[in-house]
């Protein structure tokens, strides 16, 4: 790691005053230290927000639930309210990385982690996302990369928390010293690589992600998230599904099918949702939804297997959400 100065801040206002001259925010530090150890990031100054107590905690509100950005993944996964009402968020946070990383990593940091593409993470490759005009994954090793919506960069959305929060219609609270607070929906938070390959999200350099807001759910809502990976632990998903079903008896009034590891930005499959909406949840409708989710798939040279895996992930997670199947023992999460 390069040598750097560190400004340890104990309040949000103090941290906001330090967001200048290229200073980089550190919360749990897991993703940032990884990039600094790789040599891809060499900040001269870190703003340590890890000890800002006001940014931790899970608070029920009139509108739903507010989660402080520094709440750890373990705290989110273990929270009784989240486990019972927002099950897919507990599932997503409870199976990211490893138990010890979940004790350190924050929900805000999970949402802001950068791409896990091995070319992007290597200091030896200067790619499209680093300001050059080439992507090495298209003609190189791309077995974990995107199968849809990728444009010029097929690295996949790395945050499992974002998959769950997209399905929940959640939003993030961004705070700056100059402009105060604003709220951005998760669906509008991430930037498609073709829109701007040098930005991952719409947060400005002088803003801090301070909270996550989740609206109240309709009665009869059930949800689940499952992640499939090469290893049971630590790995990011190669296929994952966040499913939210608003049930009226056995009829699904509204379905949300969210996916992370298919595309550079977390996405909903409106094709799969259309299959489920207005119908009973059965193995047949769940299977049809999985199949419909791959309508726009354009796999790369090494990831055609994902076109088979995603429908299975969606089929099983729909049935898990509906209470018709136990957690899949072959799922990594």
């Amino acid at each position: 790691m390069n040598s750097f100065a560190l400004a340890d801040c104990s309040t949000v206002e103090a941290a906001l005053s330090q967001l200048k001259d290229g200073a980089v925010v550190k919360a749990g530090g897991v993703d940032l230290l990884d990039r600094m150890k790789n040599g891809t990031d060499t900040p001269a100054r870190l703003v340590n927000i890890r000890n800002i107590a006001a940014l931790r905690g899970i608070h029920p509100t009139d509108q739903g639930l507010t989660i402080g950005a520094l709440t750890t993944l373990a705290e989110v996964a273990d929270d009784p309210t989240i486990r019972s009402q927002y099950t897919l968020l507990a599932d997503a946070c409870g199976h990211a990385a490893t138990p010890h990383i979940r004790n350190m990593a924050t929900l805000g940091g999970n949402l802001l982690q950068q791409l896990q593409c091995w070319y992007y993470r290597s200091a030896d490759f200067q790619c499209l996302r680093k300001g050059k005009d080439i992507c090495f994954a298209f003609s190189g090793l791309n077995q974990y990369h995107a199968i849809m919506d990728y444009g010029g960069c097929p690295s996949v959305a790395p945050s499992s928390g974002a998959v769950a929060l997209l399905a929940l219609d959640a939003s993030v609270e961004l705070t700056s010293a100059a402009r105060g607070k604003r709220t951005v929906a998760i669906k509008d938070f991430y930037v498609q690589p073709d829109a701007n390959p040098h930005r991952f999200h719409v947060m400005a350099d002088d803003e801090l992600l301070t909270a996550i807001h989740i609206p109240k759910l309709a009665p009869g809502t059930r949800s689940a998230y499952q992640k499939y990976g090469e290893k049971e632990s630590h790995d990011w998903a190669i296929a994952d599904a966040g499913i939210l079903l608003e049930m009226d008896g056995n009829i699904c009034r509204r379905a949300v099918v969210a996916m992370g590891a298919a595309s550079p930005v977390v996405r909903r499959s409106h094709e799969a949702e259309a299959v489920l909406t207005g119908k009973p949840i059965t193995p047949e409708t769940a299977r049809a939804a999985g199949k419909a989710s791959m309508t726009n798939a354009m796999p790369l040279s090494m990831n055609g297997y994902k076109v088979q895996l995603f429908p299975v992930a969606i089929y099983r997670t729909v049935l898990l959400a509906a209470g018709q199947m136990d957690r899949d023992p072959s799922a990594a999460g």
């Binding site: 040598s3 100065a5 340890d8 206002e13 103090a14 005053s17």
Partner: peptide, 10 residues
Amino acid sequence: APQNVKEFGP
């Protein structure tokens, strides 16, 4: 110097 900021290093 803003309040509640402690400087360390490099």
